[in-house]
Amino acid sequence: MNRLPAFTISQPQSVAEASEMLASLGDSGRLYAGGTELLATMKEGALLYDTLVDVKTVPGLADIRVQDGELWIGAAVTHFSIETSPIVRELLPVLSYVESRVANTRVRATGTLVGNLCFAEPHSDPATMLLCLDARVVAQSTRGERQLTIDEFFVGAYETALEEDEVVTSVVVPLPPANWRMAYKKFQIIERPTLGLGVVLELNDGGDSVATARAAVGCVSESPLRSSAAEAQLAGPLESLLERLDAAGDSLADEADLLDDREGSAEYKRHLIKVFLKRAVQQALQSDGPSR
């Protein structure tokens, strides 16, 4: 049986201590939360660390709370805890849904949302929806704290804008007003999803027109992305929205710079984007509030 290489585990008692540990370890150490991505990759020999810094021993990072109209999710909160959180189910059901469809039940029980983002695996479900929800990542080090948008956070596949000594303590998601409609759709036939697609539609006062729209696509590029052209095309009267969807889907696909790979041809992925954009928009509009 393939085994993990030997390492030690450090147990910081504060974010500052974790940051100091990461600074002194450099490339030989890495922050460890649920480990679902990290340990599997280490087992396959693609990553090697002498020390894992267990962020879960830092008190106060396991909470989900609402503050000033925003949802704060701590670094040690698992996908399962978010999926089943009464707060998330009530205030941001789309996120509960996204989390309920991450990987498999075992990964959801162990893996954390923040860990998922920090690993920057291109097939992340929550990353795509969080981009669509204008979420931010809170990064702390002994040098201070900063917040990054999801767009700023992802630099490429498996690569984030985090400095070596920075610890992501929370993800912050602004809670949607009552006139927003949203949905997330994914398509998966192999181990990881082939496509993830999120939409957020802000309806006007009369409820007959899309005032502003956001659309994000994931899994088909190094990082999830939005298309301002697609979002402009989605805005406008609801009665003609169906006619605009095809062009909006093309815009989203253009932005993604699709490649032929083992998950399918670029042409196939363009088709999927258009089909799933339509499904996501239809589902978003079926609800009478900001539900999934």
Partner: peptide, 19 residues
Amino acid sequence: CNVQVCGACTVLVDGLPVS
């Protein structure tokens, strides 16, 4: 599979399944 994909090694920890 040894990489948490197949579920054969599932056990429960505090009632939840883990690989």
